Amino acid sequence: MAKQDMGALQDAAEVAAALVLEGYADQWVEGAIFPREMAFFLARCMTEDVSVVVESGRQDGYSTEILGEWASRNGRRLVSIDLEQDSARAAACRQRLAHLPIELVKGSAYEEFGRWSDRLRGERVGFLVDGPKGWPAISMMAAGLGDNVRLMAIHNLTIGGSERAFFEQFGGAEVFYEAALAESGPRWHELCEREIDIAIRAGAARSLEASSLGVLVLDPERRRRVRGALRGEFGLHQPRVVRALWWLGAYRATTKLYGLSYRLLGR
């Protein structure tokens, strides 16, 4: 990373850490994206001048609330997609987020991600996926990579996993904050200390040493390579096949494609 770019990211990380420290770090619960991971994603959104974030998988709304607060303060937009299978949990989540200008979408990510990717062609977009997981999530994001998409991010990239290796193949170690923010400012250090204390008290099951949210910044060459990726792990849902279905307007067929791939191939 160029020295100038590193400085811009460090400055953005300080702003993002300050926002997350305003009560959001203390609200973290097991299973949610860690506070520093959210701050890193926001910092990348700032340096890449993202105007709209498309999030898939909001569960109880922890990361969604942080994204919504950032969007509200900075004149940005947030589209959040979730199946909302648990109606009581979904209602509580919607109430939690009611004060923020978020487009809350109920539906299958495999369908709605395609619809919103098409609708937002004129925006500078960042993708954040925490449901679905793994290769289905990666192929879904890859299928939506128009020239306007500045970054793509996914949670639960475990050390030694092939999905993590895929992200590192294109972005190197800097897709994770440990490498990208090896040097950081006082607010980031404060957030680090707060997060570790909260996570230990909550009995966090995940490692506090290595983050699992990969954030891949997309230049034209990376975008082209990710869009065109052909891998056995994608099964039937190769990005170019998913993209073709979306282009035809066959959004519902996309969900069926992912389901068929899992039934036939286990992936």
Rank of each mutant, 00 (worst) to 15 (best):
residue 103 E to W: 02
residue 128 L to G: 02
residue 95 Q to M: 14
residue 112 E to G: 04
residue 15 V to W: 04
residue 43 A to E: 01
residue 135 W to Q: 09
residue 87 S to P: 15
residue 8 A to W: 05
residue 21 L to P: 03
residue 30 E to W: 10
residue 43 A to H: 11
residue 208 L to D: 05
residue 138 I to N: 00
residue 238 Q to W: 07
residue 193 E to C: 12
residue 245 L to P: 13
residue 62 Y to I: 00
residue 75 G to D: 05
residue 259 G to P: 04
residue 146 G to L: 02
residue 107 G to H: 02
residue 212 S to E: 15
residue 95 Q to E: 15
residue 136 P to N: 03
residue 123 E to D: 15
residue 224 R to H: 12
residue 238 Q to G: 08
residue 222 R to C: 08
residue 135 W to I: 06
residue 244 A to K: 12
residue 244 A to L: 06
residue 163 E to F: 04
residue 256 K to Y: 07
residue 70 W to A: 03
residue 147 D to A: 03
residue 44 R to Y: 00
residue 177 Y to A: 03
residue 266 G to H: 06
residue 133 K to Y: 15
residue 110 Y to G: 01
residue 113 F to Q: 12
residue 102 I to C: 05
residue 52 V to T: 09
residue 41 F to H: 10
residue 254 T to I: 10
residue 253 A to F: 06
residue 135 W to F: 13
residue 121 R to A: 15
residue 34 F to S: 08
residue 7 G to T: 06
residue 191 L to T: 04
residue 113 F to W: 13
residue 93 C to D: 07
residue 200 I to H: 11
residue 239 P to H: 05
residue 31 G to L: 09
residue 192 C to R: 10
residue 198 I to V: 15
residue 118 D to S: 09
residue 81 I to G: 01
residue 16 A to F: 03
residue 75 G to A: 05
residue 206 R to A: 09
residue 104 L to I: 13
residue 172 G to R: 00
